[in-house]
Design a protein around this nucleic acid. Structure first.
Lengths: 218, 218
DNA sequence: ACCTTAACGCGACTCGCGTTTCATTACCAT
DNA sequence: ATGGTAATGAAACGCGAGTCGCGTTAAGGT
């Protein structure tokens, strides 16, 4: 029981039944203040120096907290990044619903390109993706994030299928993944800038592919 | 002439004019043996333990070389990986030329999926991509590698354009990049396995997109 | 107001990566 | 073969990330 207290910050209290018993954890008050301060400091460090120089000690100093506290609760910088990601998935984005899959896909793509125009978000994702290569925790956080986000965005595709705009056996999530792939290729492999022009091309390519039946179940 | 021999290991004295004068470097003999041994040891370590546990000291031990030697010539593990990449771009792959862009794209995609089925190649690329997030040397190595490989593969597309199979203003390299993007999305973001089925879908999507004119110059 | 104890702060400590120094080796030109 | 000198080997060293133990603080139930 007590051994799992650390799990609080990582997976939050979602699974532990919330009962106000003696001998329980104390998520309110100081603990919560520190959590907020540390995450804010992490974001600030990402903006100021980027992922490359992100250090637990620097984050702790910036947050005005002992470094042992950060190590205890988040373990390392990857723990900080993954929690920022879990934080992000909770904030919901506006999803397009124009009635046309063409404009919906374009708006989704433009949303992606503008999202990564923010240096903080860009550093955050690049950092988590880089960490995920050798850290299963980061990989899990990524999977969870995109499972949520992609299924939300896939609703546009789902509606288009119902309207008869797209083949009936289209895999909606697969379309969204195909839409996003070019962005990650550019950010990770070729390190090219990601802008609206890229978004337009990605949307056009995804649209053509799904219309041709390239993204079907099976 | 001799000046480039050292550049083969790192950039080092690339700026010194090459003169076969006394007081030059010694790229043959022991130096070359060590280079081969260290790179082979790096590959072996990648296969045995993966990128996560790749360490200069372990590579040096495995190669039977002093670690200071490896540090001097390659600086860190990223230096080792980037040189493996530069080594790889020199070995040329068979390029498809079936006379049909559809089968060419499919064969190219299958080649990619089979390439990354090899744990060593997979670890190598994931490692370099992860390092490139915060290390410009790795980013440069990646750019050079794909600039070479993609332009080679783009010849298939170029031929298809000339045959009239594809729009005249098609950007050949862009088609190849679109073909590759889904693989990196899966390997880096969702950490899904990459197999022949993925390749088939990637080829179909790229084909539909380019036929629809989604990959034109400007 | 009081008590229990989870959570934090602080400092000392460990450990390993990477650096530096200097002696030694062995290329390569003569 | 022989000398000059890159290049390597060996070992000590510095530094900083991450750990540990313990005293202190404050949350939250009574």
């Amino acid at each position: 029981m007590l051994g799992e207290l650390k799990a609080l910050t990582q997976l939050e209290f979602s699974l532990t039944s919330d009962r106000p018993q003696p001998g329980m954890l104390r998520p309110r008050g100081r603990t919560e203040r520190i959590r907020t301060a540390v995450l804010a400091a992490t974001r600030a460090e990402l903006q100021a120096h980027g992922y490359a120089e992100l250090t637990v000690e620097r984050v702790a100093d910036a947050a005005g907290v002992a470094k042992s506290t950060v190590y205890r609760r988040w373990r390392d910088t990857t723990g900080l990044l993954t929690e920022l990601l879990r934080e992000l998935v909770r904030t919901d984005l506006p999803l397009p619903d124009s009635g046309s899959i063409e404009t919906d896909l374009r708006e989704l793509a433009l949303g992606i390109s503008r999202f990564y125009a923010d240096p903080v978000q860009r550093s955050l994702f690049l950092g988590v993706i880089a960490a995920a290569v050798h850290d299963p925790r980061a990989a899990d956080a990524l999977r969870e994030f995109y499972a949520a986000r992609n299924s939300q965005a896939a609703e546009s595709v789902q509606r288009a299928v119902k309207r008869g705009e797209l083949p009936a056996d289209t895999d909606p999530v697969e379309v969204i993944r195909a839409l996003g792939a070019p962005f990650y290729y550019r950010m990770l492999v070729t390190h090219e800038p990601v802008n609206d022009a890229v978004a337009e091309k990605a949307a056009a390519a995804a649209l053509a592919a799904v219309r041709a039946g390239a993204h079907r179940t099976r």
